[in-house]
Design a protein around this nucleic acid. Structure first.
Lengths: 120, 120
DNA sequence: CGGATCTATTCGCCTACCCGCATAGTATGG
DNA sequence: CCATACTATGCGGGTAGGCGAATAGATCCG
């Protein structure tokens, strides 16, 4: 790792990450299937098989969604034998979801009528 | 308004809003243009003209995005003379954005490489 | 090694949604 | 009231990203 790379990763860069990156971060939660999976994993470590059963869609689709959640830093994967186990390490993820749920609940009526966003 | 409707709006329904609704809520922030507008308004009350200039897209498009943010409960509109002024009333909105920015910053590298989500 | 699981990738299709442009609607001030 | 901002809607086109189905790749156990 170069010196500048070390500095870059050490610096939080927090104040100024690009808006596009943050939008992509939100996009990961903007799909009902992924959000459902994340909240499922939030309640405890889950295997892929657990997730497939819970999501009610094909294994390949679930694999893609879980990869996405991992890439975006929401969950981490741990291999144990043949199986992968997924869990949420960062407690801020739960905070984010709880906060969003509270806000969404307070605006559910208007939200459900917003014609600019698909009906489900 | 019916009695049951009154009860429904009085009850927070907080604990159990449907996942689809929350996903729709996130979807509003999943677009870079809308997120950019929200963060702009978060820094102070803005007119539509301010927003058009800041966003760099056409007035009709900005109008649609602002309507979406209003519908989803992120911002409120106030008319003063001919102009509409937009602002963020609920402080939790700022909390949500700050929290998401912090998480996104800590995963920026992986996020930018996630092939499941478009490159911008 | 070889078969049995478990997980990831590719393909084609289809819908959601963003954009610019043109136009319609609405509130205010003279 | 009417002209003039200001704001919202409709349309056509393009791209992102969701889905199922088929298949390829990994990993472990005997």
């Amino acid at each position: 790792m170069t010196e500048s790379a070390v500095l870059a990763s050490a610096a939080p860069a927090a104040a100024c990450s690009h808006t596009g990156t943050v939008a992509r971060f939100f996009r990961a939660l903007a799909d009902p299937t992924r959000l459902r999976l994340l909240e499922f994993i939030l309640r405890g470590e889950r295997t892929s098989a657990d997730c497939v059963e819970h999501a009610g869609i094909s294994q390949p689709r679930v694999s893609v969604h879980l990869s996405c959640l991992v890439d975006c830093g929401y969950v981490t994967a741990r291999r144990n034998g043949k199986k992968l186990h997924y869990s949420v390490g960062d407690p801020r993820v739960a905070d984010l979801v709880v906060l969003a749920r509270a806000l969404a609940a307070d605006n559910a009526a208007a939200l459900d009528c917003c014609p600019r966003i698909g009906q489900e």
